[in-house]
């Protein structure tokens, strides 16, 4: 029986460690030919090393899978173009892009620096834009040539981007932007046979094992819900041809749980059919706040 992603060519960014590495391993085990992208930075994005990506490639090939390494900077227009080009040159096609790469530079908003803001927004938002942009151009060309591509974009948002996270203003803003980007992609790219979805993962990695160490720790026995490998099965299905009917969705995924998020609908409202007096809005808003269902709290808020 053919595996779910047999022969499909998939780029995974930031696949040298953590969740990205688990995605690459799982996709390869499902038959995909994986381009393992990672520039090998520290958790805050500094430095570079080819080794993490190459180690994952070696691990995949030793297990009987197919993978090559790439060390381009995905938030760079030309670098991400080279990444997409390498996948197509090496394997003759490109089927899915898993945008996972990104780092954090946590700081309370009032002390946040310009450099930290720019760096975090760049790697997450521009990174998600660049790789998918070049992949989409390829799928458009393929569709026009009659190749009938089944392109898949899988973005990585976060609960931080949906509900906010104390100390992570830039990260949260960027992850929220990625959720909106996913919606636009899903609406525009269907005509080229491509879907776009996002995940909001919760798992134990370099990024979370410090700050959220209690919650993330491996239990003494039983199911290790926070293992990052628990996020990847959904990615494998989304990257396959079987997910063609699913687009524009955001999934929270952790342990054995998959939760549909978003589906942003309008909540309580008042419409008086004419311009409001500012003073009247006070009472109206107070009623609306009371009517809205309880919000998920901002991560880390007291």
């Amino acid at each position: 029986m053919a595996r779910l992603c047999e022969e499909r060519v998939v780029i995974v960014t930031g696949a040298g460690r953590g969740i990205g590495r688990e995605h690459a391993l799982a996709l390869a085990a499902a038959g995909a030919r994986v381009v393992v992208n990672d520039i090998g930075t520290a958790l805050n994005g500094e430095g570079a090393s080819q080794t993490p990506a190459e180690e994952v490639v070696a691990e995949i090939v030793a297990a009987g899978g197919q993978a090559i390494a790439n060390a381009d900077d995905i938030a760079d227009w030309a670098g991400s173009e080279r990444l997409v080009q390498q996948a197509i040159s090496a394997f003759g096609r490109l089927d899915a892009v898993v945008n996972n790469a990104g780092f954090v530079r946590d700081r309370m908003f009032v002390s946040a620096t310009e450099e930290e803001w720019d760096a975090v927004v760049r790697v997450h938002m521009k990174g998600h834009f660049c790789v998918a942009r070049h992949a989409a151009a390829h799928w458009r060309d393929a569709a026009k040539a009659g190749a009938n591509p089944s392109g898949r974009i899988i973005n990585t948002s976060s609960g931080a981007g949906i509900w906010g996270s104390v100390g992570q203003a830039a990260y949260s803003a960027a992850k929220a932007g990625i959720a909106a980007l996913t919606m636009v992609q899903s609406a525009e790219l269907g005509r080229y046979g491509a879907t776009s979805n996002a995940i909001a993962p919760i798992a134990r990695t370099r990024m979370t094992e410090g700050v959220f160490s209690g919650m993330m720790a491996r239990p003494e026995d039983g199911f290790d819900a926070m293992h990052p490998g628990n996020v990847s099965p959904l990615i494998v299905w989304l990257a396959s041809e079987a997910s063609a009917h699913c687009t524009g969705r955001i999934f929270e995924v952790t342990g054995g749980r998959v939760t549909l998020l978003g589906g942003m609908t309008r909540g309580p409202e008042r419409d008086i059919g004419q311009r409001w007096e500012p003073a009247d809005l006070g009472a109206a808003v107070t009623e609306l706040l009371a009517e809205q269902p309880a919000q998920v709290p901002v991560y880390g808020a007291k």
């Binding site: 080819q50 190459e54 490639v57 070696a58 090939v61 197919q66 993978a67 090559i68 390498q86 040159s89």
Partner: peptide
């Protein structure tokens, strides 16, 4: 098939 060892700059 791609090799196990790093390709380095080889394409």
């Amino acid at each position: 098939k791609p090799p196990e060892e790093s390709l380095g700059a080889l394409r």
